[in-house]
Simulated scan of single mutants.
Amino acid sequence: MRIITIDGGSGPAEALTLAERPDPTPGPGQVLIRVHAAGVNRPDLLQRIGAYPPPPGASEVLGLEVSGEIEAVGDGVSRWQVGDRVFALLGGGGYADKAVVDARHVLPIPEGLDFVQAAALPETVFTVFTNVFEAGGLKAGETLLIHGATSGIGVTAIQMAKAAGAKVIATSRGAEKAAAAKALGADISLDAKTDDLAAAIAEAGGADVVLDMVGRDYAELNLKALKPGGRWVVIATLTGSLAEVDLMRIMVKRLTLTGSTLRARHADEKARLTAAVETTALPWIASGAVRPPIHATFPLEKAADAHRALEAGDHVGKIMLTT
């Protein structure tokens, strides 16, 4: 099978190389997926430059989400059969023609979705579900504030929050991105380049939950934006991870500050999360309420071009690879 290897150098063209490897074999409790599409995510960029190594036991090949068809099943797997159309969350190994994955981390592709659309789902849907709905406790009638609203995570968060009956305030950089977030369902979409974010969020009544992918530069904004009892969930720190926070204001407003990563979680925890996503979020996907837009698609051998597109930051939605 073909894979993308990291062969040194930090730039995409220097680091990412197409290579051949023997086909993998699924072990007990695993399935082998013939990959049709794979998502490209910011953790892939970090791993490429050596800043985000795979957890112990995970493939060193890039790629955290795929879709495709089951090609083989390991011992003890009863749910999945050869030929099933599926999408899956991986610890690594998605930039390849074939990928082995824990059978418990696999979900069926709903009718009406193609392989590219399906591969855009696992990393974003699982991340939003565990952070916004589990850690953040977002409920119908509450308000979710999303920073970085036109990223792959952001567009999915808009749609999932609306499907759950919540109000969405979105922030993004530039009028075009603000318009895109509005078109995707955000009730209020703000341009971080020109709008007074703090004033606009206050006028809208504040937020119950903040999904923060910005980090340091928005720490003060988030403290102001949150209502009493609000939840601030950090999943990325694009402007830096060290921020000065007034703890007294957290106490007075009874705020919860939390955050998480997904990749390093134990396989059993990912299995629990997969089952929860299937129960709650898969019906939203099947109905069409959650359908993240695809910004661009590249063939596997053009993975370097896909990384450059993600690094440019001009995308709205997901960047994908196909095999």
Rank of each mutant, 00 (worst) to 15 (best):
M1E: 12
I4G: 11
T5P: 01
G9I: 12
S10Y: 00
G11R: 14
A13M: 10
A13Y: 04
E14Q: 15
L16H: 04
T17M: 06
T17D: 01
T17E: 05
A19M: 00
G27L: 06
G27D: 04
G29H: 10
Q30T: 07
V31A: 03
L32Y: 02
H36F: 09
A37S: 11
G39W: 00
P43V: 05
L45T: 15
L46P: 04
I49S: 15
G50R: 15
Y52A: 06
P53V: 09
P55I: 13
P56G: 14
V66E: 10
G68L: 08
G68K: 09
E69N: 14
G74Q: 08
G74E: 08
D75C: 05
V77R: 04
R79T: 14
L89Y: 05
L90I: 09
L90Q: 04
G93Y: 03
G93V: 11
D97T: 08
D97C: 04
V101M: 12
A103S: 14
V106S: 04
P110E: 11
E111A: 15
G112H: 13
G112L: 12
F115P: 00
L121K: 15
V125D: 03
N131C: 00
N131T: 05
V132C: 01
G137H: 08
G137K: 13
L138V: 09
L138H: 01
K139G: 07
A140Y: 07
G141S: 12
L144R: 01
H147D: 02
G148I: 02
A149K: 03
T150P: 13
G152N: 09
I153C: 00
T156F: 09
I158G: 00
A161D: 07
A161R: 01
K162Y: 10
K167A: 11
A170R: 08
R173W: 02
A175M: 01
A178W: 05
A180L: 00
A183V: 06
A183F: 05
L184E: 00
G185H: 04
G185E: 03
A186D: 07
D191P: 11
K193L: 15
T194L: 06
L197F: 10
A199Y: 00
A200P: 03
I201W: 06
A204D: 10
A204N: 07
G205V: 13
V209K: 00
V209I: 14
M213Y: 02
V214E: 00
D217E: 15
D217I: 01
Y218A: 06
E220S: 08
E220D: 13
N222H: 08
N222T: 07
A225D: 09
L226V: 13
G229Q: 07
R231C: 02
V233D: 10
T237E: 09
T239L: 12
L247W: 14
I250C: 13
M251D: 00
M251G: 12
T256K: 10
T258P: 04
T258R: 02
T258M: 10
H266K: 14
A267I: 14
A275L: 05
A275W: 03
A276T: 08
V277F: 05
T279L: 05
W284P: 01
R291A: 15
P293A: 06
P293L: 10
I294N: 04
A296P: 02
F298M: 12
A303M: 05
A304S: 13
D305H: 10
R308A: 14
A309Y: 02
L310I: 11
A312Y: 01
D314N: 12
V316W: 03
M320P: 08
L321N: 04
